[in-house]
Design a protein around this nucleic acid. Structure first.
Lengths: 331, 331
DNA sequence: CACGTTGCATGCCACGTTGCAAACTGGGGT
DNA sequence: ACCCCAGTTTGCAACGTGGCATGCAACGTG
């Protein structure tokens, strides 16, 4: 058993309470006492028992960040930034991975980690507005990423519709006429994909072009392999596109690889835009044009929301983080 | 305040202890009682207070995974696999990020999270054997990745020297004669880089080739930007290499991009081998030849070690996970 | 019918910490 | 000599849970 407050108190010849005061840096402790207690702490290698402290204080200093997958570059990046932002506020982040599993999401949403974390940053994949409405757990919650019809839940996201519209418009402005969209998720509740599709269509419509179902390619997940396969499918079609808007950079990188395999030169014969601004896209050949969400801002805003919920009860708030189009070599 | 055991007990008209028995699935509870209590639990939305439970039980079910950076693809991948492996064992992983900061590593090593986690999986960057020797915290610890001179600490890694030798030998076997190594870390304590350098040199020596300091390129970190810059430096040199062994895939992808910028065809004029087998390398053009460590095995072995430490006291153990060379298009 | 057994339910306590309020100390003013 | 006050230190209680030991009732057995 490791040393506890009482052991330190006995060793230093003071009360338990005084040791606690020293540990917590309270003001009114005589310098001599403080020094003596500190010496005992060091001698015994005392470490506060965080479980006991939490039980007493009612707060843990822990946040959960719930994402579909930690190894997807976008979420890895977001996680890293969130961890850093939280560190700056003296908080620790518990990264939780759902693998897009609806049950696991539901369990986490409904308080599987209740009392273990002070707040939850939730990046939903399969969660529906109904799931959210049915939530009874009182742990502060902030939704990351788009989710339509959010009922009474705090929420931070970029404007996906606008971003997708800009990306598509960028392709159209370069004179492309057959612009495909890769990343449609027909059987998924995922709202992000739906919103990006909306923006894509809006851009086409604004340019006076028809939407063509053959150019809206569904995928299972949003990974490189899916983009790779989707691009091969598109290139196999009788009337292949001259530009592709991919809903994630990973899809785009898979598509880029597929174009290379088929000898289709990018960006001349085929222009490509991704979404997320992951680092791989900066070093691919050619480098990927992409929509860059301000991830630092997203992380920071999300933490703001949590802090605000903890201190000030009030109606749920929604915040939009900025994004911008980074034009690189694929367009 | 959310419901606690006592509230449920009053609601169901039973004792606190009986509710606890129901919550924990104890055997001797009458079906009728169990049902009634369960109904009260649902009605009140009771969630066990994990802090109190931890305090009482002495275990948290949490593990810490300490890595330099979550957003580096290798560590993101490892983290994802570790989280899944832990989930399968009913454990939760707390991902901790040090940014390679020696102080933060030291603090975590010395029990900053004591009592909050049952064990620590530690992937050191700046930690020295002396730091490890000075450790007083008693939380079970497993070192991930190579670390030389580990004194009395459990340890899981691949054979970096052998892997680096194989990678280099592969380049030499293809007839390359000027093989550079990118990823040397002269001012760092990092043991992994050192071991890969050792393997690289061993392969050269075994092939009867001299080691050339001009071909051993130091880098600051192991990212794409570093590999990119290192490759440009190499190509600027009077006698550029015809092959490069990069100590990580990220370095290799940066180098690949640089080669492309300079119009150096890969693999004809320049062969390239990376290390880590991250997903980007499978979809780059050309696809990256790399050393693939068995990350699932690493995660699993590490958890085995922790479980073993918790149950059976004994001398520290070292385990080596397998790796293999994946030959793709850059060689 | 008494007794042991089994199945079920309960009370008490401690896990290690901190909030609260009270208690002590010594120095300076009256 | 007394009191007061600011500066220190302390004891007590409680946070919510689970281990332990035991109470209690009903049942089956000799």
């Amino acid at each position: 058993m490791t040393a506890k407050l009482r052991d330190v108190a006995e060793h230093a010849g003071v009360s338990v309470r005084t040791v606690s005061n020293v540990v917590n840096g309270f003001a009114h402790v005589a310098p001599a006492t403080r020094q003596r207690v500190q010496a005992s702490i060091d001698a015994l290698g005392y470490r506060p028992n965080l479980a006991a402290r939490t039980l007493r204080r009612g707060r843990t200093g822990l946040l959960a960040l719930v994402v579909p997958e930690v190894d997807s570059p976008y979420f890895a990046d977001l996680a890293a930034r969130t961890v850093r932002a939280a560190q700056a506020r003296g908080l620790t982040v518990l990264v939780e991975q759902t693998d897009g599993d609806a049950d696991r999401e539901k369990r986490l949403l409904h308080g599987d980690r209740a009392h273990l974390v002070d707040g939850v940053l939730f990046s939903p994949w399969a969660t529906t507005p109904a799931d959210l409405a049915a939530r009874t757990d009182t742990t502060p919650l902030v939704l990351l990423g788009e989710h339509d019809g959010t009922p009474g839940v705090d929420h931070v996201a970029i404007d996906n519709v606008a971003a997708a519209r800009e990306a598509t418009a960028h392709l159209l402005a370069a004179g492309r006429t057959r612009v495909a969209a890769v990343g449609v998720q027909p059987h998924s509740r995922n709202a992000t994909a739906r919103q990006r599709l909306t923006g894509y269509r809006a851009a086409l419509t604004a340019a006076g072009l028809p939407t063509d179902p053959a150019l809206e390619v569904p995928v299972h997940r949003l990974h490189r392999a899916d983009g790779h396969q989707a691009m091969h499918t598109l290139l196999d079609s009788p009337d292949p596109p001259d530009a592709v808007f991919c809903f994630t950079d990973e899809l785009a990188l898979g598509a880029l690889r597929a174009a290379g395999e088929r000898g289709v030169p990018v960006p001349t014969a085929l222009a490509l835009v991704g979404f997320d601004d992951i680092e791989d896209g900066r070093y691919s050949t050619p480098a990927l044009t992409t929509v860059s969400p301000d991830k630092d801002r997203i992380a920071d805003l999300a933490l703001d929301h949590l802090a605000h919920q903890a201190s000030t009860p009030g109606p749920p708030r929604s915040t939009t983080a900025p994004h911008r189009l980074l034009v690189r070599e694929t367009t």
